[in-house]
Amino acid sequence: GSVVKEKKEKALIEVRPYVEYYNELKALVSKISSSVNDLEEAIVVLREEEKKASEPFKTDIRILLDFLES
């Protein structure tokens, strides 16, 4: 629970300088966080969101995924 939350919060802070739609990304992460149990599940849902998103938000999600998977 809290470790996953920390990882996601740290990821958002780390990617902030590189993303165009930070507030939207943060809102998406919050929405996903409330419906998943762990980081792996969150990553799966983020990948689905990435497929549906259009640029440049798609790239923002990709940047976040790269950080979460590192």
Rank of each mutant, 00 (worst) to 15 (best):
residue 1 G to Q: 12
residue 1 G to E: 12
residue 2 S to R: 05
residue 2 S to V: 10
residue 2 S to G: 11
residue 2 S to P: 07
residue 2 S to H: 10
residue 2 S to M: 09
residue 3 V to F: 01
residue 3 V to G: 13
residue 4 V to E: 12
residue 4 V to T: 10
residue 4 V to D: 14
residue 5 K to S: 13
residue 5 K to V: 13
residue 5 K to A: 13
residue 5 K to C: 15
residue 6 E to K: 06
residue 6 E to W: 01
residue 6 E to Q: 06
residue 7 K to V: 15
residue 7 K to T: 13
residue 8 K to E: 14
residue 8 K to H: 15
residue 8 K to P: 14
residue 8 K to S: 15
residue 9 E to I: 13
residue 9 E to M: 10
residue 10 K to H: 12
residue 11 A to G: 04
residue 11 A to E: 03
residue 11 A to C: 14
residue 11 A to K: 03
residue 12 L to G: 02
residue 12 L to F: 03
residue 12 L to V: 02
residue 12 L to P: 02
residue 13 I to N: 13
residue 13 I to P: 01
residue 13 I to Y: 01
residue 14 E to Y: 03
residue 14 E to R: 04
residue 14 E to S: 11
residue 14 E to T: 07
residue 15 V to I: 13
residue 15 V to Q: 02
residue 16 R to T: 05
residue 16 R to C: 15
residue 16 R to G: 15
residue 17 P to Q: 13
residue 18 Y to E: 14
residue 18 Y to M: 15
residue 19 V to T: 02
residue 19 V to H: 03
residue 19 V to K: 01
residue 20 E to D: 04
residue 21 Y to M: 15
residue 21 Y to R: 03
residue 21 Y to I: 02
residue 22 Y to M: 03
residue 22 Y to N: 02
residue 22 Y to G: 02
residue 23 N to G: 06
residue 23 N to K: 06
residue 23 N to T: 10
residue 23 N to W: 11
residue 23 N to F: 12
residue 23 N to R: 04
residue 23 N to S: 07
residue 24 E to M: 05
residue 24 E to T: 04
residue 24 E to P: 00
residue 24 E to C: 04
residue 24 E to F: 03
residue 24 E to Y: 03
residue 25 L to W: 01
residue 25 L to S: 00
residue 25 L to F: 01
residue 26 K to F: 12
residue 26 K to A: 14
residue 26 K to E: 15
residue 26 K to V: 15
residue 27 A to G: 05
residue 27 A to Y: 06
residue 27 A to S: 11
residue 27 A to T: 09
residue 27 A to L: 11
residue 28 L to C: 02
residue 28 L to Y: 01
residue 28 L to H: 01
residue 28 L to E: 00
residue 28 L to P: 00
residue 29 V to Q: 01
residue 29 V to M: 09
residue 29 V to E: 01
residue 30 S to R: 05
residue 30 S to D: 15
residue 30 S to Q: 13
residue 30 S to N: 14
residue 31 K to A: 13
residue 31 K to D: 12
residue 31 K to V: 12
residue 31 K to L: 13
residue 32 I to Y: 02
residue 32 I to E: 03
residue 33 S to H: 06
residue 33 S to P: 06
residue 34 S to N: 12
residue 34 S to Y: 08
residue 34 S to P: 05
residue 34 S to E: 14
residue 34 S to D: 14
residue 34 S to K: 08
residue 34 S to G: 10
residue 35 S to V: 12
residue 35 S to G: 10
residue 35 S to A: 13
residue 36 V to H: 05
residue 36 V to D: 06
residue 36 V to R: 04
residue 36 V to A: 08
residue 37 N to P: 09
residue 37 N to L: 06
residue 37 N to Q: 11
residue 38 D to G: 09
residue 39 L to F: 11
residue 39 L to C: 15
residue 39 L to I: 09
residue 39 L to A: 06
residue 39 L to E: 12
residue 39 L to M: 14
residue 39 L to T: 09
residue 39 L to R: 03
residue 39 L to N: 05
residue 40 E to Q: 11
residue 40 E to T: 11
residue 40 E to K: 09
residue 40 E to I: 09
residue 40 E to D: 10
residue 40 E to G: 09
residue 40 E to C: 08
residue 41 E to M: 09
residue 41 E to I: 05
residue 41 E to K: 06
residue 42 A to G: 08
residue 42 A to Y: 13
residue 42 A to I: 15
residue 42 A to M: 15
residue 42 A to F: 15
residue 42 A to H: 05
residue 42 A to W: 13
residue 43 I to Y: 06
residue 43 I to E: 03
residue 43 I to C: 08
residue 44 V to K: 12
residue 44 V to L: 12
residue 44 V to I: 10
residue 44 V to Y: 10
residue 45 V to F: 08
residue 45 V to Q: 14
residue 45 V to N: 10
residue 45 V to C: 12
residue 46 L to W: 01
residue 46 L to R: 00
residue 47 R to K: 11
residue 47 R to A: 08
residue 48 E to T: 07
residue 48 E to C: 10
residue 48 E to W: 08
residue 48 E to G: 09
residue 48 E to Y: 07
residue 48 E to D: 09
residue 48 E to A: 09
residue 48 E to S: 11
residue 49 E to L: 04
residue 49 E to D: 02
residue 49 E to Y: 07
residue 50 E to Q: 11
residue 50 E to N: 05
residue 50 E to W: 13
residue 51 K to E: 10
residue 51 K to Y: 10
residue 51 K to D: 12
residue 51 K to M: 11
residue 51 K to S: 11
residue 51 K to L: 11
residue 52 K to W: 07
residue 52 K to Y: 07
residue 52 K to E: 07
residue 53 A to D: 01
residue 53 A to M: 04
residue 54 S to D: 11
residue 54 S to Q: 12
residue 54 S to I: 08
residue 55 E to G: 09
residue 55 E to H: 06
residue 55 E to D: 09
residue 55 E to R: 03
residue 55 E to P: 10
residue 56 P to R: 09
residue 56 P to H: 05
residue 56 P to C: 04
residue 57 F to M: 03
residue 57 F to L: 02
residue 57 F to N: 01
residue 57 F to A: 02
residue 58 K to W: 02
residue 58 K to G: 04
residue 58 K to Q: 05
residue 58 K to I: 03
residue 58 K to T: 03
residue 59 T to H: 13
residue 59 T to V: 04
residue 59 T to L: 05
residue 59 T to P: 04
residue 59 T to E: 05
residue 59 T to Y: 04
residue 59 T to R: 10
residue 60 D to W: 12
residue 60 D to L: 14
residue 60 D to M: 13
residue 60 D to V: 13
residue 60 D to P: 04
residue 60 D to I: 15
residue 61 I to Y: 01
residue 61 I to G: 00
residue 61 I to H: 00
residue 61 I to R: 00
residue 61 I to Q: 00
residue 62 R to F: 04
residue 62 R to Y: 03
residue 62 R to T: 05
residue 62 R to E: 02
residue 62 R to W: 04
residue 63 I to W: 04
residue 63 I to G: 02
residue 64 L to S: 00
residue 64 L to Y: 14
residue 64 L to H: 00
residue 64 L to F: 15
residue 64 L to R: 00
residue 64 L to D: 00
residue 65 L to I: 12
residue 65 L to M: 06
residue 65 L to Y: 02
residue 65 L to F: 01
residue 66 D to G: 10
residue 66 D to Y: 14
residue 66 D to Q: 10
residue 66 D to V: 11
residue 67 F to Y: 14
residue 67 F to K: 06
residue 67 F to G: 02
residue 67 F to W: 12
residue 68 L to E: 00
residue 69 E to D: 12
residue 69 E to M: 09
residue 69 E to T: 12
residue 69 E to H: 10
residue 69 E to Q: 11
residue 70 S to W: 06
residue 70 S to K: 13
residue 70 S to E: 11
residue 70 S to F: 09
residue 70 S to R: 09
residue 70 S to D: 11
